[in-house]
Computed example of a mutant assay.
Amino acid sequence: MPQQQTSSPGQGQRFDWWAAPAADTASEPAAALRRTAVPAQPGPARTAAAPEPVAAPLAPPVARPLAPPVVPPVPPVPPVAPAVVAQEPAAPVSTTDRTEVYRSVQASAAFRDIRRSYRRFVFPTCGAFLGWYLVYVAAEAVVPGVMRSPVAGPLNVAWLLGLLQFASTFLLTWLYARNARTKRDRAALGLRWDTQDQLR
């Protein structure tokens, strides 16, 4: 009788000999299922249902700046040119003609009246004021005692006459303006317009 030789797994042998029955037992239920499976019966072919589309999440609304209202451009209004009145060009006046015009005005009765009224007021008034000033200066040099005579407190005769010099200046200025306004200005303006008309 041959002796059974038992040996331990040596080099080149597998160490998973204990897992073989487990693999066989694991395959048995799968085989049994295949044997007991019900054959597919004929009928309309079933199609796999298409997956429902998944709606994408809505993006939050983006705040946009409001556009300014569109205003149509206003056409510019053309400027209105002022009405030009056609005038006939005046004939140029020669130097000889101008001289004759001024000489005729100087010889006119209106010009002589204006000049006479002016001299009648200016010459006597200027003489009176100049004499009044010379009397004041001469009295200060001739009779200094009288000029130092007190009038009221520290005010003496010399101070009083000096202040009257200023007062007489303002008085004569007012009299001259009044005389020119009432007696000469209107006649002088009329004579000026007549001269301008002759020179055109």
Rank of each mutant, 00 (worst) to 15 (best):
V84W: 04
A90M: 07
P53K: 05
P78Y: 00
P144I: 02
L161W: 13
S94L: 07
W17F: 06
P73I: 08
A83M: 05
A90S: 14
P42N: 07
G145V: 12
T95V: 11
V135E: 06
A26H: 12
P65L: 03
S149W: 13
Q196H: 09
R98M: 14
Q5W: 01
A63P: 09
P2T: 05
E100R: 11
A167E: 08
V62P: 02
M147Q: 15
P60N: 04
L199V: 14
S94P: 02
A49G: 08
V105P: 00
P76V: 00
W174S: 10
V84F: 05
D197C: 03
V142I: 15
P9H: 12
V84L: 11
L33H: 02
V85W: 00
A55P: 14
A167F: 14
V93H: 06
P124K: 02
D24P: 00
G190V: 11
Q3S: 08
A59M: 02
W18K: 04
A50M: 13
T169L: 15
L172P: 02
P72H: 10
V54P: 01
R148Y: 01
L199R: 10
P51K: 06
A188V: 04
Q198I: 02
M147G: 10
A31E: 04
A32W: 01
A48L: 15
P9K: 02
V142M: 10
A109K: 11
S117W: 02
L189V: 13
A56Y: 01
A110V: 14
V77F: 02
P154L: 02
L130K: 00
W174A: 15
S7R: 07
V85R: 08
G127D: 09
L66Q: 07
G145C: 06
A187K: 05
E28T: 04
A86G: 05
D97A: 08
E140A: 15
E100N: 05
P82R: 10
P92W: 03
S117V: 05
Y136C: 01
F166Q: 04
P53E: 04
M1T: 11
V80T: 08
A59D: 01
P21S: 06
Q196T: 13
P51D: 13
L171E: 08
A32Q: 05
F111C: 09
V80N: 00
A91C: 09
L58R: 10
W132F: 12
A20P: 06
R192Q: 12
P51F: 07
G12E: 01
E52N: 06
A158D: 11
P65M: 06
R103A: 13
T99R: 07
Q5I: 14
L33Q: 08
V77Q: 05
A81R: 14
A48N: 07
D24Y: 01
S117Y: 00
V122R: 12
P61S: 13
P73N: 07
S168N: 13
P150D: 07
